[in-house]
């Protein structure tokens, strides 16, 4: 039986993603265009929030990917530390800037949404603050990768930083909650259907989330491929130099 770890081999990874990537990119484009168009033009305005509610189609998926991006990096870091597959370390590296940008999108759309709703661009609300802190963690992680030349050393150090950072990010989340009870509304989506947004908003939102997930995946795969090529080039140059 083929094991999943086979795909951790850079060559195998390259050949598989080469075939899969266009499909993922295409699907994400379709889902995003359809979801956003549906959301922006075909749903009614909210009776309280008016048309501003429509920013939800960017805000919620971006916020989801900001957190899931970090979780993906955490999983990839663990895989690197335990099994030492290079692809996994490089995927974590590739995901960081994408996740950071998702965090920025979530913060910016949140500010744009918050201005008319709460009358302020920014409030030190627990959720907002947590995202800001998450962004700082992304920055530190990216900076550490950039500062270290040797690939494996950088992978080891950033993996440990990711683990420790995850614990402290979680701690900060609770600390911030404790520090200030906020004005952010509860989660827009949950499995408990009672609390969810109305169905008219729900389905286009799901489509947008699917689009963001695929978009994130496509970007991470693309960037991982670039990282692999860069490492391959370095290895070839080293061989050339020594020969």
């Amino acid at each position: 039986m083929a094991s999943i770890w086979e795909y951790a081999n850079p060559r195998k990874f390259m050949s598989v993603t080469d075939r899969v990537l266009p499909w993922i990119a295409g699907l994400s484009a379709i889902a995003l265009v359809a979801g956003l168009a549906w959301g922006f033009f075909l749903t009614p305005d909210d009776y309280r929030q008016g048309s501003t509610v429509k920013i939800i189609y960017l805000h919620v998926p971006a916020a989801l990917m900001a957190i899931n991006g970090w979780l993906m990096m955490l999983a990839a870091s663990l895989v690197w530390l335990v099994r030492r597959h290079h692809v996994s370390a490089l995927a974590a590296r590739a995901a960081a800037p994408v996740g950071a940008v998702m965090t920025v999108i979530a913060l910016l759309t949140g500010a744009i949404w918050g201005q008319p709703m709460w009358g302020t661009w920014w409030a030190w609300d627990p959720r907002l603050t947590s995202f800001l802190i998450l962004f700082l963690f992304y920055l530190g992680y990216i900076a550490l990768w950039a500062a270290i030349e040797d690939g494996d050393t950088a992978a080891d150090l950033t993996s440990v930083l990711c683990l420790v950072g995850s614990v402290f990010a979680l701690l900060s989340r609770y600390a911030v909650n404790f520090w200030n009870q906020g004005l952010h509304q509860g989660a827009s989506l949950s499995l408990d259907k009672e609390e969810n947004v109305a169905d008219v908003f729900y389905f286009p939102l799901l489509l947008c989330i699917a689009g963001f997930v695929l978009f994130f995946l496509a970007l991470v795969l693309l960037r991982t491929r670039t990282e692999i090529r860069a490492r391959r080039m370095r290895a070839l140059m080293a061989r050339e130099r020594m020969a």
Binding site: A143, L144, A147, I148, G165, F168, S172, A175, V176, W179
Partner: peptide, 27 residues
């Protein structure tokens, strides 16, 4: 310990450590 191998890593050190200080500072 993270930045000991980096020349002039002081600034990076602050960037890495300050977010980790958040819970302690809050409490």
């Amino acid at each position: 310990a993270l930045t000991v191998g980096i020349k002039r890593g002081g600034l990076l050190l602050s960037l890495l450590v300050l977010p980790l200080y958040v819970p302690v500072l809050i409490f």
